[in-house]
Design a protein around this nucleic acid. Structure first.
Lengths: 193, 193
DNA sequence: GTCTATAATTCGATAGAC
DNA sequence: GTCTATCGAATTATAGAC
């Protein structure tokens, strides 16, 4: 009907939407889902709180948009099989320190059912499919991915959420040398030693 | 002054206090600190909300009382050194499944600074002192304890909070056989393989 | 597109009767 | 010791002016 001639022209509101998402990620990461208020997010983004509602419908809708996340796992089939563990730890550390979205999701997942569901999706779909190796059953693959998730999320929880001093102070490469072999065993080893 | 002759006589209010604490642990474990309301806790305990305030002063005070926790770590000096890992995993699993206080603390620690501080205290004081072995420096001991905490808390987070299916469905002894060796290496091994 | 004003809840906390 | 009543503050969400 009244479609504009240039559908790809950036709308003026895009900048506002982006500012809202950036502020939302910060607040959700710092305070969790319940304590992060739309008012505070709007104040950070220098806009009116009602704009948040207009653009994202509800607080849940805002969180869903702000917590969109891709682990960006590398193609593990081209990684030497004996270096899978250290590759994953290094990748996750970089991914975690460079994007606060994952911290926001982690904090919110503790109390918000929707965030927990999204967390399950990410670590079930993205991680499980990335570590799937031909020749092993689904149950075994899922279990290996679950164990990897437990150590990765435990690392993030102690380092970024609870901030246990020894886990905060340690150098990233030191973490790689300790946790890399753990993931390696979860991915390619057997239970027992 | 007017001290009663039998100071050890149980007061009638003790039963009420205990009921409040039990309900509080359930709610904090299920909903986290912010979503658990004093009104809901009082309803579960079949008492008036104002009683909670009277007995515990504030919501923070109630949480502090409800989240009192002891890991009850066994004496690790009598455990054969090569079985430290599996012993710890088995102990933590039993401790976690048998007492929802730890789940309440874990959920609350994600968003409540006081709960996070308590979590740090538990895993710094109780765990670090339990794994302290003579002859190694403080920094190394603290790092080993931190790594153990990261895997234990990651196990709890994925199994009891996020409820990742492969971590929920797996048998406890299967977890012991996978995670036990991890803790063993964190406690007595070296970085690298 | 942006903002003011406010509706409708809900919460923690307090005062005080019995 | 227990309960009723309520305060004051904060929240999400909506209606509508400009």
């Amino acid at each position: 009907m009244a479609a504009p001639a240039r559908p790809t022209q950036p709308r003026r509101s895009d900048a506002t939407r982006a500012a809202i998402l950036r502020a939302a990620r910060e607040r959700f990461a710092a305070d969790g889902y319940e304590r992060a208020t739309i008012r505070a997010i709007a104040a950070d983004a220098r806009i009116d709180p009602s704009m948040v509602m207009r653009y994202y419908g509800s607080k849940e809708g805002l969180f869903a948009a702000a917590a969109e996340f891709d682990l960006r796992l590398p193609d593990l089939t081209v990684v030497p099989s004996e270096r899978l563990g250290e590759t994953l730890v290094r990748h996750f550390l970089a991914r975690w320190e460079g994007d606060e979205t994952l911290v926001a999701l982690l904090r919110a997942a503790s109390t918000n059912p929707g965030a927990a569901e999204r967390m399950r999706g990410i670590f079930t779909d993205q991680l499980a499919s990335a570590v799937a190796t031909s020749g092993t059953g689904e149950t075994v693959t899922a279990r290996r991915a679950g164990l990897v998730a437990s150590q990765i999320l435990g690392l993030a929880f102690t380092r970024y959420i609870v901030r246990l001093p020894p886990m905060v102070d340690v150098e990233p490469e030191e973490l790689v040398s300790w946790i890399g072999p753990t993931l390696q065993r979860y991915l390619t080893g057997r239970p027992g030693n």
